[in-house]
Every structure is written in C-alpha cells, then in structure tokens.
C-alpha cells in the first residue's frame, strides 16, 4: 500500500487550483498515475497527498484554436494516437503516442503527466520538442505560458511551481505538405540503456529542404532540439548522400552530448540506425505528410 495521507478528487479546475494554493504541505497533481503510482509504491516520492485531476472534464480536449493545436493536459496517449485531428495534422505526434509503453499504459498515461515527470526518454515529449510546443500553466492567481524546452530543466525536474497545474500544451499547425516522423529504440523500462528516440519534421520547396526540426530523446537529461542535425538538412536536396551526412552528424551529436558516459559507445552507434531509418523512410514514402 502506498503512503497517501490526503486524497482529493475535485471536479473542476478552480477547486483543484484552490487545493494546491491552500495546501500546507506539498500536494502533487495526479493524472493517469502510470509513473506516480509505481514511484510511490517504491517510496520514491515524498508527498503529503494527491490531487486527482481525472474528473476535470475541461482538461481532456484536443482542439484547433486559430493557427494552433491545443492538447488538454489530461489527454491520454491513446486519445492522441487515435485523434483524427492529430493523425492528419501532426502524424508524428500520433506515432509517438502510439509507441509509448504498452496498450495499458497508453490508455491511462497522459501527455501532461509525461511532461510533469520530465523523464529523459518520454516519447511524446521528444515529438512536442520538435513541434516547439508551449505549456500553459494555471494557478489560482494567474495563467502563464512557458516553452516546453524552458520548462524542462533536468531529469525528473521542471520549472512548474507547486501551486500550478499544466492545463494545455499548444503548438503551431505545421505547413500542409511538410513531413514528420518519430522513431524509437527499446520499449521496456528494464532495457533503459537501449532507449533513444528521434522526432523529425521538414518541408521541401523547389527541391530543397527549407525547414527542419529534429528532437532527440534519452540522450541528454531531457529531450531536446538538435540544431546541428537541423543545419545538416536545411538548404539541401533530399538524397541518399544527404541521409548519410545526417547519419554521420547524428553520431557526432550524440558523442558531443554524452561525452565519456558509459552509454556513449552504444548510443553513438545506435543513433546511426534510427537516424538512417527515419530520414530514408520519410524521403522515400508518401506517408506521414501533413494535410
């Protein structure tokens, strides 16, 4: 049994924020529970109690607002994977959500929880980093928006304050015709060293790549953009030799990021495989095109 002294299940965001604001000891927002519950069973989390957000309907929506897509923080991976809007407008995010954990984890785990836990290997986070996503936070007193990149500040660490809740994750709609993909290695926690993932988005005009974004996960403490890899692509024509340049640069980038860490030898080699697979399949297939 977990040591959970206080448990609240508010039905509105206002009540949830109020609970966090008035708490004397630290209360933790609970989303799907797929990370928090096992961490608590192993006594790895020290909190006075939980504020269960699952009954707050307004946090479950996926919608378009102007030129942005907004994901409610409580959307599960399964909801993202199967959302028509996400599949057509951001296929790489649908793919990333579909590759998280197991069907059971995808039915319970949420995108907001994935961000708040700041796991180095979080799949949807790598895709959202490549999408340059923003995170909207609310407290009783204010609302603020922070870029996802800035919000993550180390393995398991974020700049979310104790009285704040992530309400939405937003990002700009991609240009129709651009392509994007997501790839990962290693599914099980037990194979932690083998975990690595990459998200890639690019568009081509007049035969040349004019826009590229690359997210890399499980290499640094948090998923991050790789400018070096993006610059390898921008201005170039899609070709087999460009794939090889990209693969070489991926190896150099991972070597730079990991330095002399024990996993470096393995990951420098492994990243070549995922870099080659993702770019060559995006160059050759007509799928994964944004509508």
């Amino acid at each position: 049994m977990l040591d959970c002294k206080l448990y609240f299940q508010p039905e509105s965001l206002t009540v949830a924020l109020d609970l966090l604001a008035k708490a004397e000891k630290r209360l933790l927002p609970l989303a799907g529970g797929t990370d928090i519950v096992p961490a608590m069973s192993k006594n790895k989390l020290n909190v006075a109690g939980l504020v269960d957000l699952s009954k707050i309907q307004e946090l479950h929506q996926i919608k378009i607002e102007g030129n942005e897509i907004s994901l409610g923080s409580l959307c599960t991976f399964q909801e993202i994977e199967t959302s028509h809007l996400i599949r057509t407008k951001v296929p790489l995010l649908a793919d990333a959500a579909g590759l998280v954990g197991s069907p059971q984890i995808r039915n319970a785990g949420t995108v907001g929880g994935n961000i708040a836990n700041a796991s180095p290997a979080a799949d949807t986070v790598t895709a959202l980093i490549a999408l340059d996503a923003d995170v909207r936070l609310r407290s009783t007193a204010y609302a603020r928006t922070m870029s996802l990149k800035e919000l993550l500040c180390g393995a398991g660490k974020t700049r979310i304050l104790p009285q704040e809740i992530i309400t939405e994750i937003t990002f700009k709609i991609l240009q129709p015709g651009s392509k994007g993909g997501f790839i990962k290695l290693g599914r099980r926690k037990a194979l932690a060293i083998a975990r690595m993932n990459m998200a890639l988005i690019f568009s081509v005009t007049e035969g040349r790549i004019n826009f590229a974004r690359v997210g890399l996960g499980a290499v640094g403490p948090n998923p991050c953009r790789s400018n070096a890899l993006e610059n390898t692509l921008i201005g170039q024509e899609p070709s087999d030799s460009l794939v090889e340049d990209f693969v070489m640069e991926a190896e150099r980038e991972v070597a730079r990021m990991l330095g002399s860490r024990p996993s470096a030898a393995y990951k420098c080699e492994a990243v070549k495989g995922i870099a080659r697979d993702i770019l060559s399949s995006l160059f050759s297939s007509s799928e994964m095109v944004v509508e």
Binding site: L2, C4, Y7, Q9, L30, G32, G33, T34, V37, P38, L50, D52, S54, Q78, S102, P103, Q104, I105, N107, A108
Partner: peptide, 12 residues
C-alpha cells in the same frame, strides 16, 4: 479500456 490495475489508485 484495458489498464494495469497495479498502476491505478483505487479512488481513480
């Protein structure tokens, strides 16, 4: 929906 009941707190 299929879930792992070891990852769900009873109140959920």
């Amino acid at each position: 929906k299929l879930v792992d009941s070891c990852l769900v707190l009873a109140p959920q």
